[in-house]
Write a protein that binds this DNA or RNA. Structure first.
Lengths: 139, 139
DNA sequence: CTGACTGCAAACGTTTTGCACGGTA
DNA sequence: TACCGTGCAAAACGTTTGCAGTCAG
């Protein structure tokens, strides 16, 4: 928590209550879309404006404090920026989670093949989570 | 070309001139966003409506003829659906290209680790393309 | 000939902007 | 105290819808 205050300072952003709670909420959920975040915030700040949510998301995303997560057919979500990781999406229940993977061999290969200097590798897996697999068997 | 007519039929879509040209344009460019596509189409069909472009993109995406490509900070683009492949984005010139990679080892690993039944793996590389690397050296 | 598609205009939803006030540093 | 951030309202933007006429199959 105090941690975030310090990090915000590095980014020249003030630690307003609204902003702090946004960060807490994003951390708690892992990934969140604008609407869900707004609804959540209204419980704590009944008069909060959607514009404030957008402004904060934008300022925190521009400087890298937050990261955009775009997945086909889903609303854009946001997460706290952290070490590289892949995303796992369950096609059935829609749950989105993080997972760490070894992507270097693949990346190195792509780099050789293409001549690109690759700086970042984004990976998303789509499938069925364990819980939904169980449910499906029951049918 | 005739090829696409047949494929459209499978999807129960009519081969209108507008739609055929959209497909040609998407094939030619590889990936394209709505606005660029609309501008392109206006050269051929001066009275074409943006609504038509949206309707066609949606109908062709829903049934899998086209695939959405979502990348952080970029407008959504569309490509013809084809065998799995990764995307390479140049951070400098913005060029987006396809590349085939061996992602199975990584996917298998993620599957074991997570217990998910993984059906699809999406991979995007971000970096600097060979041409831009050369340009940069000159500076 | 019939249903699907087109173009147009209006509606709708999402995101951004300008401004006056208030709060953080 | 000086700015940055907030809330509000309006504007801007992107996407969808309804409809009447047209075209592909």
């Amino acid at each position: 928590m105090q941690n975030y205050k310090t990090r915000l300072k590095e980014y020249r952003l003030k630690a307003t209550p609204q902003r702090m709670y946004m960060i807490e909420e994003i951390e708690k959920r892992g990934h969140i879309d604008i609407d869900t975040l707004y609804e959540s915030l209204k419980n704590i700040f009944p008069y909060i404006s959607l514009a404030t949510v957008y402004k904060n998301i934008n300022s925190m995303t521009e400087n890298g404090f937050l990261t955009e997560v775009k997945i086909p057919k889903l609303k854009t979500r946001y997460e706290l920026s952290k070490e590289d990781h892949a995303h796992l999406l369950c096609r059935e229940c829609g749950k989105l989670t993080d997972i760490s993977v070894e992507s270097e061999p693949m990346t190195k290969n792509a780099q050789l093949k293409s001549g690109y200097k690759i700086e970042k590798t984004l990976v998303t897996f789509e499938g069925i989570c364990p819980a939904c697999q169980k449910k499906d068997k029951g049918k």
